[in-house]
Design a protein around this nucleic acid. Sequence first.
DNA 1: CAAGTATGCAACCATTCAGTTGCATATGTC
DNA 2: GACATATGCAACTGAATGGTTGCATACTTG
Lengths: 117, 117
Amino acid sequence: MVAYLCPFDMKRDIFQAIADPTRRAIIALIALQAMTPNAIAENFHTTRQAVSKHLRILTECELVTQEQKGREIYYRLKIDKMKEIDEWLEQYRKIWESRFEQLDTLLSELKQQENMR
Amino acid sequence: MVAYLCPFDMKRDIFQAIADPTRRAIIALIALQAMTPNAIAENFHTTRQAVSKHLRILTECELVTQEQKGREIYYRLKIDKMKEIDEWLEQYRKIWESRFEQLDTLLSELKQQENMR
DNA sequence: CAAGTATGCAACCATTCAGTTGCATATGTC
DNA sequence: GACATATGCAACTGAATGGTTGCATACTTG
């Protein structure tokens, strides 16, 4: 829940944030180690400003945090925020696990019938 | 990996498919029970054609399948495809679980030190 | 079989988006 | 302190997107 909504603040949710392949790649890059915009940009063929734009979006979605050290800014992945996707996925995980269990039960019953012959 | 890319076929990946709130709502709607476009559209304030468009996108991304019965088409969620998101999330799950274990270990050590006083 | 119902697609429109260019500000170095 | 480096933002552009309107096709009903 955000305190307020501006025309550009928090206008995207986390799913919109990860929809872009470049942003997913940035997330993967900084997953284990915070990195600076220049260090991140070195891994892409686009401009540094394009990467900076993506970092702003990820920051607005609270997926990353900034940590300034002199003129360098370190962007760190807020791993806890990724749990929001996991929590959303939980409802579907229950469904596919439920179906897997149903299949497992069916297979067991079929095996039992097989053994009774 | 798709066999080929057309200007509109499979041009979105599953993350782009779930980026739109309406499509996520459609997914939730048909998660347990296949539904027809009209039945789905009854839950939204947009036009039936807008819903139809979203269903096409979800179909192209292999998130749903179609099952025609007379003039009615039943759209069913391909729950297995949702695992693709889970698989992508696995790399981050390992990170937050690892950090949780590190925290747990630290707490245990602190408790041991507490007991030695 | 005419009328009703279900459904998708093309064209259009306004908005959003991703990347680029240009520029400004802040920090570090020599 | 001049110069180099790090970084973000505004403006622009072309492409993509989501919703609407109009229309066509297929199936159902009376």
